[in-house]
Design a protein around this nucleic acid. Structure first.
Lengths: 215, 215, 215, 215
DNA sequence: CATGAATGAGAATTCATTCAT
DNA sequence: AATGAATGAATTCTCATTCAT
């Protein structure tokens, strides 16, 4: 019936204020999403948490889902920034992988609400893949591909290693662990697993003496 | 969500018929859940798919969520049965792990609708952990723990290997891969990955010459 | 977000009951629409007037607009039936026109709520033209075309008379009068105007001695 | 609907500028109203069309409805001016009627957006009758009354002719035709109907030989 | 004068679930 | 055992309007 749907384009004269307010809303939303989950969260709850009126949210975001995706974009961008900065100082190929693993673990551990949203709500959302926010997530995980490729090229990792499969392993490993931690609090902390995980990942891709795996 | 929840205890004269109908409903539901996702699926859609009246569903299940969890239980039980049967014939420790990996991959590949439900909807559902269905899922994944412990005991795997961590790795790896496959159809098939995955997993836990990983 | 929109097809085993209930709702709705106008009427008000729950309305109609259009269809069908029945007994060409005029006036006068809805709400609704209900309205007004054509053919009306224009005149005349009556209660009753209107309409189309209208 | 309504009395230093801006807004609004209809039009759309900020509209008008009514007033005043000017040069009674008919047809045809607003939105609006704008509309239609009365007095029109009924006929005729044209584009143009309409109207009220209409 | 920003107040729908038959 | 019918309860999103700057 009613037509027109574009976000009443927040006619921002003041871009900085606008951005800050968006982030404030995102933070309020993260709290609620993280605690109750996306579907169980109401716009009302988000707005209460962000201390704004319900209608105000729609001045900054198109929909509840837009808020969700924007959270992903915002936090992943931060994580990405972290990784890039640190990565900058490391040239050792193996160290890069260790770094990535540690970085993910610490990021998830330090941002349990975001981890919850990302791993429990976002992952199952088919629309997320089509959102621009997803690209940022991909960019972040791309660092694993690069790190593996570099190792293969340098002859440190096995030639037959499939970087994409390794990414699946690393991310799957970490995410599965994080979900366990989030939902069952087991283990109590995940960041200490970084060494074990690193070793396992390394062994699985590094060249080593025992080569033959006959079926 | 809604309240009021007394189970109109289905006083089944004919237990078998009852079970069959439940399964029929589950199959109808799986189709819709798998295609649209849990939240986007309506009872009406499930019942249309199962060719029953909306009210009839409640003769067999307590709620929409009960249907979801029952799907998990039903299918996992099947998967579990598969695994046990095959496992029965293998005594080689390594082979057991290969089997588990292959079994999961094939099960997911052969039941994409269930995979979708399990990995995209169930995983993010906090209530699932409290459901009896979850126990069946745990039982299934328990085989990994056993297989690892056995290998450690036999001295095939490294002594410092944490079976629980390995389970996280294996399941995380496989599930992450499956999600990619489900949502992005990349890779086209996942069962062929079984060897690569097996090798990587093995290397990550087997004893091998290169032992030292200095930080 | 949510998809699917088709009216949860009222799975009517009992078609008669269904039809009766639809009509009951229509009557309740007419009351409110007629008094407050379409836009100012809420689903809640309709349902209160029809003594049903809000959700129940949607078992019978797709939307508020569907209710509006269904009112038009229902009442116009009645009117049409009236006209046809009476018309059946008249063979005199002029009488047919008199009948039509009288019929419209009486129908509007006897159903002021419907008149209000039809003339004040429906006429300005662009979607109405695309609705099946509109066809019924057209059918009703078609009788004017027929009556005029007949008169022209018989040589009673001027040859250059445009039946469509006459329809515009007759309907426009009656409707304008009815709107005045509805909104301003002036004149107090409209049915007595039937003779004056009839005469005016007749004179405007009948052959008569004074033929020349020089510009 | 909404409450709170104190007119922030625009203390206009520059009355002309003020009037010009009001008209500019009216023109912007007419465009949107005419295309989408009153209810479907948002203040945002009007202001976008008028190239002002939403809040600015309220410096010039009290409400959305005030804008609507002001459009009617503004355009009808123009139309009225036109009619008066031309009318001034005609002394022939019949010609006056021809003039009125032609004038309405041309005005509607030349201002389809306004016609749309006037005939599709304004006519069904009960509040309009209470607005000052309505008086201007009445004044315009008053010319028909005068023209008829004059004709009756001069003995050109039948003595029993009811000027108010004639007004209903003329306006109803023209408006019905215009609505058809607006919504169905049938006929393609309405101004050429002026002669046919004039003839029909004239015949319906002029004295002529055939006097008796026996029932 | 103009307006960016904020919001109160709805209002139409949707849907899981109940229950009389 | 099956279901047609009814509905309670909720929730997103819209939009006219206000007001401080």
């Amino acid at each position: 019936m009613k037509q027109g749907n574009q976000v009443r384009k927040t006619k921002t004269k003041n871009k900085t204020n606008n951005r800050l307010k968006k982030i404030a809303i995102l933070e309020g939303a993260l709290k609620v999403f993280g605690e109750k989950g996306f579907e169980a969260t109401t716009i009302a709850a988000i707005c209460k948490s962000a201390k704004i009126a319900d209608a105000t949210l729609y001045e900054y975001f198109e929909s509840k889902e837009d808020v969700l995706f924007s959270i992903a974009e915002h936090y992943t961008r931060q994580h990405l920034e972290n990784m890039k900065q640190v990565n900058h100082f490391f040239h050792n190929t193996r160290e890069k992988m260790r770094l990535i693993i540690q970085s993910y673990l610490e990021f998830y551990e330090d941002n349990p609400l975001y981890s919850s949203v990302a791993l429990l709500n976002l992952k199952g959302n088919r629309n997320f893949l089509k959102s621009p926010a997803y690209q940022v997530v991909r960019e972040a995980s791309g660092s694993i591909i690069e790190a593996v490729d570099e190792g293969v090229k340098k002859g440190i990792y096995r030639d037959d290693v499939d970087a994409y499969l390794v990414r699946n392993m690393v991310l799957g490993f970490i995410e599965h662990l994080t979900i366990q931690w989030l939902l069952l609090k087991r283990p109590e902390k995940i960041s200490p697993c970084r060494d074990s995980i690193f070793i396992m990942v390394m062994q699985s891709i590094e060249k080593n003496c025992k080569e033959a795996y006959d079926n």
